[in-house]
């Protein structure tokens, strides 16, 4: 797999992105034509969306919304990482812990984070804590599951070698278990961060006074500003893409490159 290698040079990147850019341009053109042809009064043209976005940039409010959303995702996600990785390692390593806790997590996992919103409001009010809690809930399970899977799929020959050399428990974890699981943890983090970004927008639509989700709902409520609604959606998409790219950079780190080589 060549995925995760970051040796690609610029012209190659541009060449690869070319078809997607073409399709995007076509879609925008189609959108524009449809809006003009249908004489819609509410639905904005791409140009209106662009000027709407510029308005947000000019008065600076866009940065506050992005900052608020990123802060919530960052905090909730960091808490989830700090919780999920040690727990996943423990559950993966200790059979009893797995047998006891896994059924509970499997039951909690399919509950949509959106379903937790009423409880979040009840417990944490409508401040920053609610969305942080929802992000924690949404990203913690995929990371636990991936970490456990990582421990369970460590090849026996490596564990045997460690046993053969009679290394301490500390060395076993530091030099065998954790490096072996790390690629799985990174996959879990990518999934977790993706879900977190989905959820923060949904959570902000309901309760708060800032953030990209709030921007969308508020733009609609305050005078049907659909240009701003779509501008918000596009910004959410672009930031989500950047977050995923950033996580992918981790896959190129030398500690996990072995997983993708060959």
């Amino acid at each position: 797999m060549a995925r995760g290698r970051i040796t690609a040079v610029r012209p190659v990147v541009v060449k690869k992105a070319w078809p997607s850019l073409m399709v995007a341009a076509l879609l925008i053109a189609l959108w524009w034509i449809l809006v003009v042809e249908s004489h819609s009064v509410i639905f904005p043209t791409p140009w209106q969306v662009l000027t709407g976005m510029w308005e947000l940039v000019k008065d600076g409010s866009i940065w506050d919304h992005i900052g608020a959303s990123l802060f919530r995702v960052g905090t909730g996600f960091a808490l989830a990482v700090a919780f999920a990785i040690p727990l996943g390692l423990w559950m993966g390593w200790v059979q009893g812990a797995y047998a006891t806790l896994n059924p509970i997590f499997q039951m909690l996992r399919p509950i949509s984070p959106i379903a937790w919103i009423p409880l979040a409001i009840l417990w944490f009010g409508v401040g920053n804590q609610s969305p942080i809690f929802l992000i924690f809930i949404s990203s913690v399970f995929p990371m636990i599951v991936q970490t456990i899977a990582g421990v369970h799929t460590i090849e026996r020959r490596y564990l045997r070698a460690a046993e053969n050399f009679g290394v301490s428990r500390y060395t076993l974890f530091k030099q065998v278990v954790i490096p072996a699981v790390l690629p799985h943890i990174i996959v879990g983090m990518r999934i977790g961060l993706g879900v977190a970004w989905l959820v923060v927008v949904a959570a902000e639509m309901i309760a708060l006074r800032s953030g990209l989700g709030y921007l969308i709902i508020d733009s609609r409520n305050a005078g049907n500003r659909y240009d701003l609604v779509i501008a918000g959606m596009i910004i959410i998409g672009l930031i989500g893409l950047m977050l995923d790219r950033a996580m992918r950079l981790l896959e190129g780190h030398k500690l996990v490159r072995w997983r993708y080589a060959r």
């Binding site: 045997r160 070698a161 053969n164 072996a180 072995w258």
Partner: peptide, 12 residues
């Protein structure tokens, strides 16, 4: 020390 067919040199 055991050396086996598929090897156990740690890839990381």
């Amino acid at each position: 020390i055991l050396i086996s067919q598929h090897g156990s040199v740690f890839p990381w």
